[in-house]
Design a protein around this nucleic acid. Structure first.
Lengths: 170, 170
DNA sequence: GTCTATAGGAAGATAGAC
DNA sequence: GTCTATCTTCCTATAGAC
């Protein structure tokens, strides 16, 4: 179930239904409310992200700098590929929607895996905070200022080198 | 005219009117449409930002690293102070709204001043892109993950040092 | 210029036939 | 399970009195 292409806030149940070849009321046999649909989309998006992460996890290089590059590259590509999905996953752009604990679980898992990676290479929680901000900043700038292009997404390698230097990684 | 506190997308004309002590229809004597109100708010927000920038501009230190810190600190504080304003200024969170050229002018002016600052210290356009991404990443992370706190906004100094190192600034 | 009243439309959600 | 038809609510915007 993939969302529209011009922002998530304006998505209606009728559009969602049309996208899957149904009428709006039929959605209520599968979900209790519109927010339940958002919840399922949120969970699915982060689950896909987690799956991609776990596939990458096993073939991660031992070098800290290089593994950060691989992880960041993968996450940025995933996030840039689909704007509404990114808005749903990361921004608080829908007025009444708060993801349920179950839907939140895979998002926590992704962050926890990144945390593990940071611990493995002797990095701190504050390092992780800075990493999170830089990566999401690149993604947001890409979406906001050069949609469809790669003016910011191509800076991932440079950004990771910059972070790794700052972290004191070899 | 300041917006609400729980996100901009759900803001209604009745709320806007109530905030200024009026009824919804009375707004139409001042604005042609809801988007015209957004447009005025967009223009005002960026104008305020520009004013703050220009006040800072005259007492900017000659040192590149320190002037970047001052500018970034000022912009981050401004953006963190008001979430709906930040959403209006930077994110594309309102479905049908696109700012008019006149409203966009002060936003361009702010970016242009930053561009001048970068040129003054021998920095490139790509350096500016990276700077923009990092700073807005800090702001967004602050709003999204620690609203009301300063877990990310306090990393501005470290982030600028990291950027300045990467730029080759002394 | 601001108000009350309301038009006109679209949204989320429900009822009940098939 | 999906449909058509409809309810209820809330939105932007307009009309017209004061």
């Amino acid at each position: 179930m993939i969302a529209g292409e011009e922002g998530l806030a304006g998505l209606t149940l009728r559009q969602v239904a049309a996208r899957v070849g149904m009428r709006a009321p039929s959605l209520y046999t599968h979900f209790d409310s519109k927010n339940a649909i958002y919840d399922a989309m949120f969970a699915q998006a982060w689950s896909e992200c987690l799956v991609q992460y776990e596939e990458l996890w096993d073939r991660l290089p031992s070098d800290g700098r290089e593994s950060l590059k691989a992880v960041a590259r993968s996450f940025v590509d995933f996030s840039v590929r689909d704007l509404p999905r990114h808005q749903l996953m990361n921004l608080r752009t829908i007025p009444g929607f708060e993801p349920s604990p179950e839907a939140y679980a895979p998002a926590v898992a992704v962050l926890e895996k990144t945390h593990q990676l940071f611990l493995r290479h002797g990095l701190t929680d504050e390092d992780l905070d800075l990493y999170v901000a830089v990566i999401s900043g690149l993604i947001d700038a890409q979406h906001a200022n050069d949609p469809g292009g790669q003016r910011w997404s191509r800076l991932v390698h440079r950004a990771i080198d910059m972070l790794a230097d700052n972290f004191g990684l070899p």
